[in-house]
Structures are given as structure tokens and as C-alpha cells.
Design a protein around this nucleic acid. Structure first.
Lengths: 149, 149
DNA sequence: CTACATGCAAAGGATTTGCATATCT
DNA sequence: AGATATGCAAATCCTTTGCATGTAG
């Protein structure tokens, strides 16, 4: 069980590769945007990514961040994440199946990986007969509060 | 296990009661908005609720729908629903804990009630030690396709 | 060289806000 | 009567679009 994806910072070359494999041109802007998205905790909005990004490339525009994130989503490098609160879209660089911890106090959304839980769900739905629906992926939204510990 | 909430249409008096119990004034507008929200399938946007509502109260303004939905959410009569796609907020009159079936073909989001699944999750998290987080509600997002059957 | 990405500014859509008026309790 | 909700319009926020210019492949 882990609360976050691993944050081994990818080298510039690895970032370039990920874009190339996805069929996207590796521009300075996209490299920076992808890098920031990977290192930002939680599920940042375009605005939050932009704030991080301008530290490295000062006149990178917010419009470009929107366009880049859209292309990332289109090729499957990034996901749009469901969020009930707040009115901005949120993005997640982690495309592997995972669950979410949603803190009602801080509005934070944290990734949550738990293979035991995955197995439990797979087994449950293998037996559960759901006429009219063929399930294949599960994502659990766990609402609660962060506590000391 | 049920795919939808029951849609027994509440009487005007029941609607009034629900608002009163929630500590909200029962105005004609709110009664209509709540009624429409309950009878609309899926998870409508404020705009969709408004379209339904003006059929009954022609000059009820969209602003009022927003304000009413906000009050409903504040007192727990209604939920804001997480959605990754689209840029409008969606609302759900069903505040009982429930799960969602997301069809990748039609983009539909259907409510899904399953008390066995609820129990399974409660039991799992009662045993699972999650340092730093106090979980209380679970909502499973089940992605898949509608099939004949 | 050529297709595609960027930056900027303007447009568009969704939501919120302010305030005078109307309504519920 | 007094507190609160409504309607309308303006303001604000978030996101998309158009187009001239720059750059990767």
C-alpha cells in the first residue's frame, strides 16, 4: 500500500522519450510541463501546473499549458481526474489504475495504491453477476480526513 | 443490487418537509428545483435542471438554480458529483452512499447500489491500517461497457 | 522545408456576486 | 415585521479559439 506514486525524477532524456513514444513533439515547453506535472503532488489544475512551470520558463503561457495537457490526455500520457469540489479540472500524470483519498478538510486528492484492494475488487466482481454491464476497471474514492499518525 | 435509485415522485408536501427538515425555506422555486432534480435521470448540470424547471415556472432564473443547488449541497440534501469529462458541475439528489457505473461507450454515469459491496469495503478498511488518514465514505467508480443482457 | 507548437489576446461558457424587490415564516 | 430568497445584470473565473510567428523533425 502506498499513498503516492514514486517520484523518481525522470531525466530530460526520459521525458523526451515519453513524449516521442506518445507521438508528440518534444518541445521545451512540453518537457517542462510534463516534468512539473510529474513532480507536483496531488492532482494539480492547469493553473497550478503553470505556476510551477513559469519558474523554469518564465514566459510560458497558460494557454500553452492547457493545450499541452490536452494533448497529453489525448495520447494517454495523462488523465483528467474526477473532482466534485472546486470548479477547475484536475490532471494526473499517473495513468496506472489506482484509487483516491479525498480529504474533506484540505480538498487534497491523494493517489492510493493497494494491490490487496485491487484483488478484492476483482474477485468480488468476478462472482457478482451484473446483467447488462461488463466491468473492467475500478477506482475507489475514499473520503475522509487526514489525521496525525 | 440496483442500478438506479427509486423514482417514486414525492408529493408537494413531502418536498416541503424535506426542505423544512433541512432548515431551508420552502419557496416555490426551491420546491420546483428539488422536484426536478429528483426526477432527472443521471447527474444533471445546473443548466439541465434549469431547462426542466422553467417548464413549470417560466421565469425562474438560472442564478436562482445555482443558489438553490448550493444551499441544497450545504445542508446535505444534494451532492456534487465528481466528473472528469465536461466542464460543468453535476448534481445528484441521492445522498445515500452509492457507487457509479461509467460506460466508456455512451459516457453515461449510472448510480449503482450494492450493500454487499458496501459491507466488503467497510470490513476491508476496518482492518486495513491507513496511517495518516481516517476514511469514512467509499464510492467505487466502475468503468466498463453496457452489454446486452 | 513543412507541419505543428507557441504566445498573445479575444471570445466563450460556467459560476458568482450585488443589490433592489418580493416572499416566507 | 424581519429575515431570507429571488431576479436581473454585471463581474469573475476557467477554458478554448484564432492567428501571426517560431521551431522540431
Amino acid at each position: 500500500m502506498t499513498f503516492h506514486s514514486d517520484h523518481t525524477p525522470p531525466t530530460p532524456g526520459q521525458l523526451r522519450d515519453r513524449l516521442a513514444k506518445a507521438g508528440l513533439r518534444a518541445t521545451r515547453q512540453r518537457l517542462t510541463i510534463l516534468e512539473c506535472l510529474l513532480q507536483l503532488p496531488g492532482h494539480p489544475t492547469a493553473e497550478q501546473v503553470h505556476r510551477q512551470v513559469v519558474a523554469q520558463v518564465p514566459n510560458l503561457s497558460l494557454g500553452t499549458v492547457y493545450k499541452a495537457l490536452d494533448s497529453f490526455v489525448e495520447v494517454g500520457l495523462t488523465r483528467r481526474v474526477a473532482s466534485a469540489e472546486g470548479s477547475s479540472r484536475r490532471y494526473d500524470a499517473d495513468c496506472s489504475a489506482h484509487h483516491h483519498l479525498i480529504c474533506t478538510d484540505t480538498q487534497e486528492i491523494m493517489d492510493f495504491h493497494d494491490s490487496q484492494l485491487d484483488t478484492l475488487l476483482q474477485e468480488f466482481f468476478a462472482q457478482r453477476n451484473m446483467p447488462g454491464f461488463q466491468a473492467h476497471t475500478f477506482s475507489l474514492h475514499i473520503t475522509g480526513e487526514k489525521v496525525a499518525g
